[in-house]
Structure formats: C-alpha cells, structure tokens
C-alpha cells in the first residue's frame, strides 16, 4: 500500500510539473508548425507569469491576472512576428532577444511596482487558481486504489491543470481536423504551395503566433498564480527550453509531445525525489559515485535525449521543412 501511495504521489508530482511544459510545448507546436522557430517560449512564459501575478496582486482577480498574462505573452509573440514575418529577421536572434529582454524587464517592473526585489506580493486566494475538489472525492478517498486514483490523481488540481491536458486534444483537433490546421501544417512545410493556393503566408503565420502567445500566457499564469502564489525572478527556470526539447522529441505532434512532456516532468519529479533519498554515506566507491550522480544525470536526460534524436541515433526528428526560413517570394 505504501508503494502504491508512493506511485500516486510521484504521478501527481509529475502532473503538476508537466503542466507548464505541456502548455508551452503546445504553444511552440503552433509556431513551429507554421514555420517560425520559437526559442522565445521561455521569455513569453516568464513575461506572462509576471503580468499575471502583478495584475493579480493589484486587482485581486485571478481572471484579470490570467488575461494580463495572456495579453503580455501575445504581445511578445507579435513582436516576434513583426521581426520575423514582416521584416524577415532572424528567428533565433529574435527569440534570444525576447528571452533576455523579458528576464530584465520583469524584474525592473516588479521593483518599480512592488519594491520587493523583483518579487510580487503573496497573492490572496481569490487571485490564485486553487485546487478543485471533484464531487465525492473525499467520500471515495478511502476506497483502495480507485478511490485514491480518483481523489488524488484526477481530483484536487487547479483549473489550469485541466486546461493544459484539454489543450492537447484541442490542439490535435485544430491541427488535424480543421481548415486552419491544414493550412497551418502546409505553411510550415511548403509556404509557396500555400501562396499559390491563394492563402496569405504572413497571415497564417501571425495567426499561429497568436495561438502560441495565448498558450504560453496560460503556462506563465500557471507558474505564478497556480503553482505558486507570487512571481519571482527567473521563475520559468528553463521550462521553455525543456518544452522546446519535448516539442522536438515529440516530433511536432500533439500527443507524442504531451507524452514527452510527461516523461520530462516525471524525470524532474524523480530527480527531486532521488536527491538525498539514498543513504549515500554507507555506500562506497563506485556505487556511491553512481548514486550521487544519478539525480544530475536525470536532470540532463531530456537534453541528451534530444541531441541523440537530432543526431538520428534514436529515430529521426524532421522539423517542418520551412521552419526558420523567412518566406520571400522567389523571382
């Protein structure tokens, strides 16, 4: 029973850690499927986390906070679009610029608004996404296995957790079942085919970036108003890049990308668990080295896996063919 509880606990931790990854990865999916490389997921998330916490703290409304997070993230996505679509700028440089700008600006504005060294004040409960308890969760909590699964794993999360996991089928549906999705996939593979079919390439890419902005906005709001109750500098802590890694690992397809996020989330949860979990002092020599090194190895596993994938050692990852290349009509 204890082992079962441990598994439930791990899975629960995995879910919580995976939420921002799933949202950001779906965000990146829209951008990259349209042919725009987005290494600015990190910056958009961070910007949204700040905007959500700041507006939440100022207005006391969780919804206004979420809206602010989304607007901030969409604005950054449009800046990326303006540089990369309208001005054919380098997409990687633009992404780097956005990441660095946001890392600086969030702290500058945070200090200007709250004078707490870049942190926002603790958010009151009404400005946070709190856990939703599903009907009957408490009643069935003692039922073996199923009860625990229901009350611990399904129930008891905040709204954004459910949003994140609903975003996956929604993304799948949009990408594979709608006109927009068909054009989105086409514009990332063969913009000239889209152009000759009488569809605006720039228009499609801007629309994709708006969706990217919205999803990244939710991811950011989750960090500051759901997972924690305040914004703290650099709080995205590389999650945007892990999401990018998951996006590549899932080969730009919604369900595999989600699974990659869950895998990476699991690794993160496991690494946190493992640190100090072993009685290192009693082990000796090589075993000891392995045990102490394990959490770090698990930490970098997502990145190593992506490199191996890109190198073609574990399957192949073929990016949308037109990604990274500004669309200029050929003469």
């Amino acid at each position: 029973m204890e082992q079962f509880d441990f598994v439930i606990l791990m899975l629960d931790a995995m879910l919580r850690v995976s939420v921002p990854l799933v949202l950001a990865a779906m965000a990146g999916l829209f951008s990259e499927r349209s042919g725009i490389v987005d290494i600015g997921l990190e910056g958009k998330m961070l910007g949204a986390a700040f905007a959500a916490a700041a507006v939440g703290a100022l207005t006391g409304s969780v919804w206004l906070g979420l809206l602010a997070g989304i607007l901030a993230s969409v604005a950054l996505a449009m800046l990326h679009g303006y540089a990369c679509i309208t001005h054919n700028g380098n997409q990687v440089v633009s992404g780097v610029a956005i990441n660095i700008m946001v890392a600086g600006l969030t702290v500058v504005l945070g200090i200007a608004l709250f004078s707490r060294g870049g942190q926002t004040p603790q958010l009151p409960a009404e400005a946070r996404f709190t856990a939703l308890t599903w009907p009957g969760a408490e009643a069935v909590a003692d039922v073996p296995i199923l009860g625990a699964l229901y009350s611990e794993l399904l129930s008891g999360h905040n709204l954004l957790v459910y949003v994140a996991f609903l975003a996956v089928p929604a993304t799948w549906w949009v990408v594979y079942r709608t006109r927009f999705g068909l054009r989105l996939r086409a514009v990332g593979e063969s913009p000239e085919a889209v152009d000759t079919a009488g569809i605006s390439v720039a228009g499609m890419r801007y629309r994709a970036l708006i969706l990217t902005g919205i999803l990244c906005g939710v991811a950011g709001a989750y960090l500051s108003t759901a997972q924690s109750a305040f914004f703290v500098r650099e709080m995205s802590a590389g999650k945007g890049f892990i999401a990018l890694a998951a996006l590549i690992f899932g080969k730009w397809r919604p369900v595999p990308v989600m699974l990659a996020c869950l895998l990476f989330g699991f690794l993160e949860a496991a690494s946190a668990r493992l640190q100090g979990a072993f009685d290192v002092d009693n082990a000796s020599g090589f075993v000891r080295e392995v045990l102490t090194g394990l959490p770090f190895l698990i930490d970098v596993l997502p990145f190593i896996l992506v490199v191996l994938l890109l190198a073609g050692f574990v399957g192949t990852a073929v990016a949308p063919k037109a990604s990274g290349i500004p669309y200029v009509k050929e003469r």
Partner: peptide, 26 residues
C-alpha cells in the same frame, strides 16, 4: 508549376483541398 507546389507530408486529398476546403472543418 515547374516546381510542384505540393506539401510532401500531406495526402493527395489534403493537397487538393488546400485553399479550397469548403468550410472551417475538414
């Protein structure tokens, strides 16, 4: 066109309807 304006990973059907989908849902 001389260089085909086709989306390689798409099916024939998807290529044909691209731009003439006839509605928001496919």
């Amino acid at each position: 066109h001389q260089h085909f304006m086709l989306v390689d990973p798409f099916t024939v059907l998807e290529n044909v309807v691209l731009g003439a989908e006839g509605g928001a849902l496919l």
